[in-house]
């Protein structure tokens, strides 16, 4: 499972980096969205998958999955939501101000 997940994560990263490099601001934001999925899955995968019960002590299991990465990822998900929405609104405002979503046209002047 870990090997499979590593490959899946690699593909997610590839796609999101490819989206980053595109000219459309919308695609860049979709890239960040996918990238956060990739990172979350990566964190979970690195801590060995499916060893023991969910980290709830009232299940009375012998072993539990590592709760720490889960706590990390939980925070990361919420932060990623904040960041994505921030970027999204920034794109929205940019479009309203400049009437374009093309990053090539949005670049600053050369002597800045």
């Amino acid at each position: 499972m870990e090997v499979l997940m590593s490959i899946v994560i690699g593909i997610i990263f590839t796609v999101s980096v490819y989206l980053f490099l595109s000219r459309s601001i919308i695609r860049v934001i979709l890239g960040t969205l996918l990238l956060s999925h990739g990172v979350h899955l990566l964190l979970i995968t690195m801590s060995e998958l499916q060893r023991g019960a969910p980290p709830l002590l009232n299940l009375d299991a012998d072993a539990y999955t590592d709760p720490l990465p889960q706590a990390l990822v939980l925070t990361a998900i919420v932060i990623a939501f904040g960041v994505t929405s921030f970027l999204l609104v920034m794109a929205y405002r940019t479009y309203k101000e400049h009437k374009t979503d093309d990053l090539e046209e949005l670049r600053g002047s050369a002597d800045e």
């Binding site: 919420v78 939501f81 904040g82 929405s85 609104v89 929205y92």
Partner: peptide, 13 residues
Amino acid sequence: VVVGAALTIILAI
């Protein structure tokens, strides 16, 4: 904070 932030963001738009 979570309720406030999520709704603030969405309602603002």
